[in-house]
Computed example of a mutant assay.
Amino acid sequence: MPKPINLTTVVLGLVEQLGRLPLPVLRCLGVLLGLGLYVGVGSRRRVVRTNMSLCFPHWTSWEIRLYSLRTFVGFAQAWLDRGWLWTASPELLRRRLKLVGACHELDGQEPTVLFAPHFFGLDAAWTALTLGVPRRFTTIYTDQQNKTSDAWILRGRRRFGSPNVLGRVDGVKPVLASLKRSEPLYLLPDMNFGPEESLFVPFYGVPAATVPSLSRFAKLGRAKVVPVIARMTAQGYSIELLPAWRDFPTADLRADTATMNLRLQGYIDAMPAQYYWVHKRFKDRPDGEAGPY
């Protein structure tokens, strides 16, 4: 009896094959895929529009529709880009991935937490860092329900630099141990991971359940915080390292977490269509407040 076809394996294999195309062609395919997702996935389209309505109340309905569409296109393009991010030669990757800005912040062995917001280029930034910076990096990974997809993502993220990819269920101790070994921690703390470990602090003026891990890890690991902002470009990605935050962390965990969200807003304002608005950022609410979705 023939073995059942694993549809996920077929799709991921197709993504890798498409990754061999010239980048302009692949990005055009991303436009078509993004348009299809925008039209076909109404539930997620409503999430994006709700997020934008809450965060940008001054936008017109036309602007919200336009940026929602651009968000779906960017999401699709970034997904297809993983076909070359995780298979192409190091030489090609160096041409398409440009590390810019305060790269000196990663010189030496000073404990460092990299604040990596959920822009669509987050995997491009990780690949550029693990390929181009001679330090071992650590990150925290959330297991995917689809085990085939899970294995594919982990293989891609472990491709260069022998990184330390920790599971979210592993807890705090291995993360702190990695910081003590001077392994920069690539941290993505700007999603809603549930109210249990979160603080409600403003995000664009709206209370948002936010994990205080950036301040906590920086304090416990005696580490500096360096933002890393990935921007999709026509040539690939520009990954900008910003100067370390000199006034962070403080003794006030809640104030630090609010500061993180406030500074994140500035990064988003520079390229709002490249942020991960497809996530239900405001799903969890303070007691007695109705959810927006």
Rank of each mutant, 00 (worst) to 15 (best):
A124C: 08
R94T: 04
Y67H: 14
T8V: 12
Y276D: 00
N192W: 08
L114R: 00
G161A: 04
S89N: 04
V201M: 14
P202Y: 06
G266T: 12
T8C: 10
T127R: 09
A128D: 05
I140L: 15
D287Q: 13
L122G: 06
A234C: 04
G291R: 06
G236A: 11
R159P: 13
M232T: 12
N261G: 04
G108V: 07
K173Q: 13
V175T: 07
M52P: 00
L262H: 14
E63Q: 13
W79R: 01
S149K: 02
D107Q: 14
L32Y: 03
S215V: 07
L214I: 11
P272G: 04
I268W: 00
G167A: 10
R158H: 01
M260H: 12
L122Q: 07
P22C: 15
A255M: 10
S178G: 10
G121C: 08
L262Q: 15
M1Y: 03
L242R: 10
F115W: 13
F203S: 02
D269Y: 09
A102S: 03
L187T: 01
L166R: 06
K3C: 02
V39T: 13
R20D: 10
Q145I: 14
K147V: 11
L92Q: 11
R181H: 14
T112D: 12
G121A: 08
M260V: 15
G132F: 00
K219F: 13
P22K: 14
A102C: 07
Q145T: 14
D284P: 02
D123N: 03
T130H: 09
F115Y: 11
W245F: 05
R96F: 01
W126M: 08
L264H: 02
K173Y: 15
G156L: 06
Y141G: 01
D247I: 07
R155M: 08
E183H: 09
V25L: 12
P292I: 11
R135F: 05
D81G: 13
C103V: 11
F282I: 08
D247K: 03
V201W: 14
G42S: 15
R222M: 08
P111D: 12
T233N: 02
G74R: 00
W245Q: 02
P202F: 02
V41W: 04
D123T: 03
T233C: 02
I268S: 10
P212V: 10
W245E: 01
V228R: 00
A258V: 13
A251M: 06
